[in-house]
Computed example of a mutant assay.
Amino acid sequence: MIEFLPLPDDHPDLAASPMLRGARHILGYALEHEGIGLTATKAFKRDFVHWAVENFEWPGKSPEEMFRYHRVVNEADFQPLELLHFLLIRLRLGRHYKGRFLATNDGRMYAGQAGALFDKLVPFFLLAMDHAAYSRIGEAPPGNWDTWLNVMNVEIEDGVSERKLFGVFYGEGLDWDNDGRRQIGTFSSCVLKPLEWAGLITLQETREPDGRTAHMIFKAPLWRSALKLETDEMVRPAVRH
């Protein structure tokens, strides 16, 4: 069982959720500027895309990194923005009207309610979205969120490497140097990345003995404040706030 706990709008842990922060930026900008301009294909125009790159504070998507590879950045080049655009329309918090993205009445209301917006946006993003659809590999790993979250609840309490966590679910032996490259990449794209973007885990870059870049996975404070899981009693220390 997975339960998201309601959080008050001023809960300090909410500030660490990239998804929530990005959604509030979009809605706030649309309300302040009477909408956001759209291209002929109904993507956000470049002036707003550049503003979003500079203000979203998205993990792994710093302005320096984005503009290093793109002289100009379109919505399709900034995947988090493209995804949030879709989600806000899908959840009826925004709509397209006469060439602009506008906040709906619900969007206007939720823009000022961080806790309620998190509860509406993040569970849907995490549990209902097809994360393989926007991953580079295009495949989903075997498993489900109930299993992944309850096992991770125990395994990452003190931090664990990406490779070791993959081994917990799918067996030891697979590595980036062998047939495991694709499987580990799929697990990272469809499970770890969504959790990081939701603000529930953090990935800290480290180095393997051979110098290869690796990641350690830790629970973010929001994991403990927002999630209620069946394995909570197995976590040491089993602390809930």
Rank of each mutant, 00 (worst) to 15 (best):
A140K: 04
P141N: 02
P141T: 07
P141L: 09
P141H: 00
P141Q: 00
P141G: 01
P142C: 01
G143Y: 04
N144W: 13
N144A: 07
N144R: 09
W145R: 02
W145E: 01
D146C: 06
D146V: 11
T147V: 15
T147A: 15
T147E: 15
L149T: 06
N150A: 08
N150D: 06
M152V: 01
N153G: 02
N153I: 07
V154Y: 09
V154L: 03
E155I: 11
E155K: 12
I156R: 04
I156V: 01
I156G: 02
E157K: 13
E157G: 10
D158E: 13
D158I: 11
D158A: 12
G159E: 05
G159Q: 11
V160W: 12
S161L: 13
S161R: 04
E162G: 13
E162Q: 14
E162N: 15
R163F: 10
R163K: 15
L165A: 08
L165M: 06
L165C: 06
F166H: 05
V168A: 04
V168L: 03
V168P: 07
F169S: 03
Y170H: 01
Y170A: 02
Y170D: 07
G171V: 00
G171A: 00
G171T: 01
L174N: 13
L174D: 10
D175C: 10
D175H: 14
D175P: 12
W176C: 08
W176N: 12
D177V: 04
D177N: 12
N178Q: 05
N178P: 04
N178S: 04
D179A: 14
G180V: 10
G180E: 05
R182P: 09
R182I: 07
Q183A: 10
